[in-house]
Protein backbone atom coordinates (compact mmCIF):
# COMPACT_ATOMS: atom_id res chain seq x y z
CA UNK A 1 0.00 0.00 0.00
CA UNK A 2 2.73 2.47 0.96
CA UNK A 3 4.40 1.92 -2.38
CA UNK A 4 1.23 3.07 -4.10
CA UNK A 5 0.60 6.40 -2.37
CA UNK A 6 2.97 8.54 -4.49
CA UNK A 7 0.91 7.57 -7.55
CA UNK A 8 -1.87 9.91 -6.47
CA UNK A 9 0.51 12.87 -6.55
CA UNK A 10 2.22 11.73 -9.73
CA UNK A 11 -0.88 11.95 -11.90
CA UNK A 12 -1.37 15.76 -11.66
CA UNK A 13 2.35 16.31 -12.31
CA UNK A 14 2.21 14.19 -15.46
CA UNK A 15 -0.98 16.00 -16.48
CA UNK A 16 0.66 19.44 -16.19
CA UNK A 17 3.70 18.21 -18.12
CA UNK A 18 1.35 16.85 -20.79
CA UNK A 19 -0.41 20.23 -21.07
CA UNK A 20 2.89 22.00 -21.62
CA UNK A 21 4.16 19.62 -24.29
CA UNK A 22 3.08 19.60 -27.92
CA UNK A 23 3.59 20.91 -31.42
CA UNK A 24 3.26 24.54 -30.27
CA UNK A 25 5.01 26.13 -27.31
CA UNK A 26 2.62 27.58 -24.79
CA UNK A 27 3.73 30.69 -22.95
CA UNK A 28 2.68 31.18 -19.35
CA UNK A 29 1.00 27.77 -18.96
CA UNK A 30 0.26 28.21 -15.27
CA UNK A 31 -1.33 31.64 -15.67
CA UNK A 32 -3.77 30.30 -18.23
CA UNK A 33 -4.28 27.07 -16.33
CA UNK A 34 -5.30 28.73 -13.09
CA UNK A 35 -7.34 31.49 -14.76
CA UNK A 36 -9.52 29.65 -17.25
CA UNK A 37 -11.21 32.89 -18.36
CA UNK A 38 -8.03 34.85 -18.94
CA UNK A 39 -7.76 36.24 -22.44
CA UNK A 40 -9.91 33.62 -24.21
CA UNK A 41 -8.98 34.93 -27.66
CA UNK A 42 -5.27 34.28 -27.25
CA UNK A 43 -3.57 31.35 -28.97
CA UNK A 44 -2.21 30.00 -25.69
CA UNK A 45 -5.67 29.90 -24.13
CA UNK A 46 -7.13 28.12 -27.10
CA UNK A 47 -4.34 25.58 -27.32
CA UNK A 48 -4.53 24.79 -23.60
CA UNK A 49 -8.28 24.85 -23.10
CA UNK A 50 -9.66 23.82 -26.48
CA UNK A 51 -7.05 21.34 -27.70
CA UNK A 52 -4.82 19.96 -24.99
CA UNK A 53 -7.00 19.93 -21.88
CA UNK A 54 -9.78 17.81 -23.44
CA UNK A 55 -7.20 15.41 -24.76
CA UNK A 56 -5.36 15.15 -21.44
CA UNK A 57 -8.71 14.69 -19.72
CA UNK A 58 -9.75 11.99 -22.18
CA UNK A 59 -6.43 10.14 -21.76
CA UNK A 60 -6.94 10.08 -17.99
CA UNK A 61 -10.58 8.96 -18.20
CA UNK A 62 -10.06 6.34 -20.93
CA UNK A 63 -6.93 5.00 -19.22
CA UNK A 64 -8.76 4.75 -15.89
CA UNK A 65 -11.77 3.05 -17.52
CA UNK A 66 -9.53 0.49 -19.25
CA UNK A 67 -7.49 -0.12 -16.10
CA UNK A 68 -10.67 -0.80 -14.11
CA UNK A 69 -12.12 -2.95 -16.90
CA UNK A 70 -8.90 -4.99 -16.94
CA UNK A 71 -9.00 -5.57 -13.19
CA UNK A 72 -12.65 -6.67 -13.46
CA UNK A 73 -11.74 -9.05 -16.29
CA UNK A 74 -8.88 -10.66 -14.38
CA UNK A 75 -10.70 -10.89 -11.06
CA UNK A 76 -13.94 -12.24 -12.52
CA UNK A 77 -12.23 -14.95 -14.59
CA UNK A 78 -9.65 -15.57 -11.85
CA UNK A 79 -7.06 -15.51 -14.63
CA UNK A 80 -4.05 -13.22 -15.05
CA UNK A 81 -4.34 -13.35 -18.85
CA UNK A 82 -7.82 -11.88 -19.06
CA UNK A 83 -8.56 -8.48 -20.50
CA UNK A 84 -11.48 -6.98 -22.46
CA UNK A 85 -9.68 -7.63 -25.75
CA UNK A 86 -9.41 -11.33 -24.97
CA UNK A 87 -13.01 -11.71 -23.77
CA UNK A 88 -14.35 -10.35 -27.07
CA UNK A 89 -15.71 -7.18 -25.45
CA UNK A 90 -13.45 -4.71 -27.29
CA UNK A 91 -14.05 -6.29 -30.69
CA UNK A 92 -17.80 -6.37 -30.04
CA UNK A 93 -17.76 -2.67 -29.17
CA UNK A 94 -15.75 -1.86 -32.31
CA UNK A 95 -18.14 -3.82 -34.52
CA UNK A 96 -21.11 -2.09 -32.89
CA UNK A 97 -19.69 1.36 -33.59
CA UNK A 98 -18.64 0.41 -37.11
CA UNK A 99 -22.09 -0.88 -38.03
CA UNK A 100 -23.70 2.22 -36.53
CA UNK A 101 -21.39 4.54 -38.50
CA UNK A 102 -21.66 2.66 -41.80
CA UNK A 103 -25.45 2.67 -41.66
CA UNK A 104 -25.25 6.42 -40.98
CA UNK A 105 -27.14 6.05 -37.72
CA UNK A 106 -24.37 7.58 -35.59
CA UNK A 107 -21.07 9.42 -35.92
CA UNK A 108 -17.85 8.57 -34.10
CA UNK A 109 -17.60 10.25 -30.71
CA UNK A 110 -21.35 10.83 -30.32
CA UNK A 111 -23.59 9.44 -27.60
CA UNK A 112 -25.22 7.28 -30.27
CA UNK A 113 -21.85 5.67 -30.93
CA UNK A 114 -21.53 4.87 -27.23
CA UNK A 115 -24.92 3.15 -27.36
CA UNK A 116 -23.87 1.14 -30.46
CA UNK A 117 -20.60 0.23 -28.77
CA UNK A 118 -22.39 -0.79 -25.58
CA UNK A 119 -24.80 -3.02 -27.52
CA UNK A 120 -21.89 -4.62 -29.42
CA UNK A 121 -19.78 -5.02 -26.28
CA UNK A 122 -22.66 -6.55 -24.32
CA UNK A 123 -23.63 -8.89 -27.13
CA UNK A 124 -20.07 -10.15 -27.61
CA UNK A 125 -19.50 -10.53 -23.86
CA UNK A 126 -22.78 -12.39 -23.38
CA UNK A 127 -21.87 -14.64 -26.33
CA UNK A 128 -18.50 -15.53 -24.75
CA UNK A 129 -20.17 -15.92 -21.38
CA UNK A 130 -22.91 -18.25 -22.62
CA UNK A 131 -20.57 -20.46 -24.67
CA UNK A 132 -17.97 -20.93 -21.91
CA UNK A 133 -18.34 -23.83 -19.48
CA UNK A 134 -15.60 -22.82 -17.04
CA UNK A 135 -13.60 -19.79 -15.97
CA UNK A 136 -10.73 -20.96 -18.19
CA UNK A 137 -13.05 -21.36 -21.18
CA UNK A 138 -14.03 -17.71 -20.80
CA UNK A 139 -10.48 -17.00 -21.97
CA UNK A 140 -10.19 -19.60 -24.75
CA UNK A 141 -13.70 -19.03 -26.13
CA UNK A 142 -13.20 -15.28 -25.71
CA UNK A 143 -10.08 -15.45 -27.89
CA UNK A 144 -12.16 -17.21 -30.54
CA UNK A 145 -15.03 -14.71 -30.36
CA UNK A 146 -12.52 -11.83 -30.49
CA UNK A 147 -10.79 -13.29 -33.54
CA UNK A 148 -14.07 -13.66 -35.43
CA UNK A 149 -15.31 -10.16 -34.58
CA UNK A 150 -11.94 -8.54 -35.30
CA UNK A 151 -11.85 -10.28 -38.67
CA UNK A 152 -15.33 -8.95 -39.49
CA UNK A 153 -14.28 -5.43 -38.41
CA UNK A 154 -11.07 -5.64 -40.48
CA UNK A 155 -12.77 -6.98 -43.59
CA UNK A 156 -15.55 -4.40 -43.34
CA UNK A 157 -13.03 -1.58 -42.95
CA UNK A 158 -11.04 -2.67 -45.97
CA UNK A 159 -14.20 -2.80 -48.08
CA UNK A 160 -15.42 0.64 -47.03
CA UNK A 161 -15.32 3.28 -49.73
CA UNK A 162 -16.71 6.57 -48.47
CA UNK A 163 -15.44 10.06 -47.68
CA UNK A 164 -14.94 9.46 -43.94
CA UNK A 165 -13.23 6.07 -44.43
CA UNK A 166 -9.91 7.56 -43.38
CA UNK A 167 -11.16 8.82 -40.06
CA UNK A 168 -13.00 5.54 -39.43
CA UNK A 169 -9.82 3.62 -40.06
CA UNK A 170 -7.88 6.09 -37.91
CA UNK A 171 -10.35 5.50 -35.08
CA UNK A 172 -10.17 1.73 -35.48
CA UNK A 173 -6.44 1.74 -34.69
CA UNK A 174 -7.06 3.80 -31.57
CA UNK A 175 -6.33 7.51 -31.38
CA UNK A 176 -7.14 10.37 -29.05
CA UNK A 177 -6.77 13.00 -31.76
CA UNK A 178 -10.51 13.12 -32.48
CA UNK A 179 -11.34 13.94 -28.86
CA UNK A 180 -13.34 17.10 -28.07
CA UNK A 181 -14.86 18.51 -24.89
CA UNK A 182 -18.06 16.69 -25.84
CA UNK A 183 -16.24 13.37 -25.56
CA UNK A 184 -15.49 14.15 -21.93
CA UNK A 185 -19.17 14.75 -21.16
CA UNK A 186 -19.84 11.14 -22.16
CA UNK A 187 -16.71 9.58 -20.65
CA UNK A 188 -16.86 11.21 -17.23
CA UNK A 189 -20.32 10.12 -16.00
CA UNK A 190 -19.93 6.58 -17.36
CA UNK A 191 -16.52 6.23 -15.72
CA UNK A 192 -17.77 7.53 -12.38
CA UNK A 193 -20.82 5.23 -12.33
CA UNK A 194 -18.79 2.23 -13.54
CA UNK A 195 -16.01 2.84 -11.03
CA UNK A 196 -18.43 3.21 -8.12
CA UNK A 197 -20.29 -0.02 -8.97
CA UNK A 198 -16.98 -1.83 -9.50
CA UNK A 199 -15.72 -0.58 -6.13
CA UNK A 200 -18.97 -1.61 -4.41
CA UNK A 201 -18.92 -5.12 -5.83
CA UNK A 202 -15.19 -5.55 -5.14
CA UNK A 203 -15.50 -7.69 -1.97
CA UNK A 204 -17.58 -10.30 -3.79
CA UNK A 205 -15.00 -10.30 -6.59
CA UNK A 206 -12.38 -11.31 -4.03
CA UNK A 207 -14.39 -14.48 -3.44
CA UNK A 208 -13.90 -15.65 -7.01
CA UNK A 209 -10.22 -16.29 -6.31
CA UNK A 210 -11.40 -19.25 -4.19
CA UNK A 211 -12.77 -20.99 -7.27
CA UNK A 212 -16.43 -21.40 -8.21
CA UNK A 213 -17.08 -24.54 -6.16
CA UNK A 214 -15.74 -22.99 -2.96
CA UNK A 215 -17.81 -19.86 -3.58
CA UNK A 216 -20.88 -22.07 -3.90
CA UNK A 217 -19.98 -23.99 -0.76
CA UNK A 218 -20.36 -20.85 1.32
CA UNK A 219 -23.69 -20.02 -0.29
CA UNK A 220 -22.74 -17.47 -2.95
CA UNK A 221 -23.31 -17.58 -6.69
CA UNK A 222 -20.05 -17.11 -8.60
CA UNK A 223 -21.75 -16.74 -11.97
CA UNK A 224 -23.89 -13.88 -10.72
CA UNK A 225 -20.85 -12.03 -9.33
CA UNK A 226 -19.02 -12.65 -12.59
CA UNK A 227 -21.89 -11.51 -14.79
CA UNK A 228 -22.22 -8.26 -12.88
CA UNK A 229 -18.50 -7.63 -13.35
CA UNK A 230 -18.83 -8.38 -17.06
CA UNK A 231 -21.70 -5.93 -17.42
CA UNK A 232 -19.71 -3.08 -15.84
CA UNK A 233 -16.66 -4.04 -17.89
CA UNK A 234 -18.68 -4.02 -21.12
CA UNK A 235 -20.03 -0.52 -20.47
CA UNK A 236 -16.59 0.86 -19.54
CA UNK A 237 -15.02 -0.67 -22.64
CA UNK A 238 -17.89 0.52 -24.83
CA UNK A 239 -17.44 4.13 -23.81
CA UNK A 240 -13.68 4.02 -24.46
CA UNK A 241 -13.88 2.18 -27.79
CA UNK A 242 -16.62 4.45 -29.11
CA UNK A 243 -14.67 7.58 -28.30
CA UNK A 244 -11.04 6.69 -28.99
CA UNK A 245 -11.06 3.23 -30.60
CA UNK A 246 -9.46 0.06 -29.31
CA UNK A 247 -6.27 0.68 -27.33
CA UNK A 248 -3.98 -2.30 -26.97
CA UNK A 249 -2.45 -3.80 -23.86
CA UNK A 250 -3.43 -1.21 -21.28
CA UNK A 251 -6.27 -3.20 -19.70
CA UNK A 252 -4.03 -6.25 -19.40
CA UNK A 253 -0.99 -4.46 -17.95
CA UNK A 254 -2.55 -1.92 -15.57
CA UNK A 255 -4.05 -4.43 -13.08
CA UNK A 256 -0.78 -6.39 -12.89
CA UNK A 257 1.20 -3.25 -12.12
CA UNK A 258 -1.47 -2.14 -9.63
CA UNK A 259 -1.46 -5.55 -7.93
CA UNK A 260 2.29 -5.28 -7.49
CA UNK A 261 1.81 -1.88 -5.85
CA UNK A 262 -1.20 -2.52 -3.63
CA UNK A 263 -1.88 -6.29 -3.46
CA UNK A 264 -4.78 -8.35 -4.78
CA UNK A 265 -7.72 -7.02 -2.74
CA UNK A 266 -10.24 -5.75 -5.26
CA UNK A 267 -11.37 -2.74 -3.21
CA UNK A 268 -7.92 -1.19 -3.59
CA UNK A 269 -7.07 -2.89 -6.86
CA UNK A 270 -9.96 -1.24 -8.71
CA UNK A 271 -8.72 2.22 -7.69
CA UNK A 272 -5.06 1.63 -8.44
CA UNK A 273 -5.73 -0.14 -11.73
CA UNK A 274 -7.61 2.98 -12.75
CA UNK A 275 -4.77 5.25 -11.63
CA UNK A 276 -2.07 3.19 -13.33
CA UNK A 277 -4.15 2.97 -16.52
CA UNK A 278 -4.69 6.73 -16.51
CA UNK A 279 -1.00 7.43 -16.08
CA UNK A 280 0.23 5.04 -18.76
CA UNK A 281 -2.28 6.29 -21.31
CA UNK A 282 -1.54 9.93 -20.50
CA UNK A 283 2.20 9.39 -20.97
CA UNK A 284 1.65 7.32 -24.12
CA UNK A 285 -0.72 9.86 -25.67
CA UNK A 286 1.55 12.80 -24.85
CA UNK A 287 4.41 10.93 -26.48
CA UNK A 288 2.17 10.12 -29.45
CA UNK A 289 1.51 13.78 -30.21
CA UNK A 290 4.69 15.48 -28.91
CA UNK A 291 7.56 13.20 -29.96
CA UNK A 292 7.71 14.13 -33.63
CA UNK A 293 5.22 16.99 -34.10
CA UNK A 294 3.10 17.60 -36.03
CA UNK A 295 2.80 13.86 -36.73
CA UNK A 296 0.78 11.53 -34.55
CA UNK A 297 2.25 8.19 -33.56
CA UNK A 298 -0.10 5.18 -33.13
CA UNK A 299 -1.21 5.18 -29.50
CA UNK A 300 -1.62 1.39 -29.20
CA UNK A 301 2.05 0.85 -30.00
CA UNK A 302 3.10 3.40 -27.40
CA UNK A 303 0.90 1.94 -24.64
CA UNK A 304 2.58 -1.41 -25.38
CA UNK A 305 6.04 0.12 -25.49
CA UNK A 306 5.57 1.95 -22.19
CA UNK A 307 3.32 -0.53 -20.38
CA UNK A 308 5.09 -3.77 -21.25
CA UNK A 309 8.50 -2.98 -19.70
CA UNK A 310 6.79 -1.84 -16.48
CA UNK A 311 4.68 -5.00 -16.51
CA UNK A 312 7.73 -7.22 -17.01
CA UNK A 313 9.68 -5.36 -14.32
CA UNK A 314 6.89 -5.70 -11.75
CA UNK A 315 6.43 -9.40 -12.53
CA UNK A 316 10.18 -9.99 -12.20
CA UNK A 317 10.26 -8.16 -8.89
CA UNK A 318 7.28 -10.00 -7.45
CA UNK A 319 9.57 -13.05 -7.41
CA UNK A 320 7.68 -15.96 -8.92
CA UNK A 321 9.76 -18.99 -9.90
CA UNK A 322 9.43 -21.93 -12.27
CA UNK A 323 7.76 -24.83 -10.52
Amino acid sequence: MKKALPLIFLLPIIAIAALSLGATDVSELFRYLFNPWLNPESASHQIIWQIRAPRVGAAILVGAALGIAGSLAQSSTNNPLADPAILGTSAGAALGVLLGVLTNVVTIGSIGAVVCAAIGAMAATVLTFSLARSALQLITIGIGVSAILNAVVGLTLSAVNRPDARSISFWSFGSLSLVTTKTLYVLLPVLIIGAVIAWKSAPTLDLLSLGDASVRHIGHNAQRVRFRAFAILAVLVAVTVSSVGAIAFLALAAPHIARYLCGPRNRVLVIYSGLVGAMILLIADTAARALIPPFELPIGLLTSLIGAPILIATLKKSGDVWR
Binding site: P80, D206, L207, S209, L210, V215, I218, H220, R259, G263, P264, R265, S318
Partner: peptide, 14 residues
Protein backbone atom coordinates in the same frame (compact mmCIF):
# COMPACT_ATOMS: atom_id res chain seq x y z
CA UNK B 1 -3.28 -19.72 -5.73
CA UNK B 2 -1.88 -17.07 -8.09
CA UNK B 3 -3.00 -13.99 -6.16
CA UNK B 4 -0.86 -12.98 -3.20
CA UNK B 5 -3.53 -12.87 -0.50
CA UNK B 6 -2.21 -13.65 2.96
CA UNK B 7 -3.10 -16.94 4.64
CA UNK B 8 -5.42 -15.16 7.06
CA UNK B 9 -7.10 -13.12 4.32
CA UNK B 10 -7.89 -16.29 2.39
CA UNK B 11 -9.27 -18.12 5.42
CA UNK B 12 -11.50 -15.15 6.30
CA UNK B 13 -12.68 -14.52 2.75
CA UNK B 14 -16.48 -14.58 2.45
Amino acid sequence: YWLSYSTRELIEMG
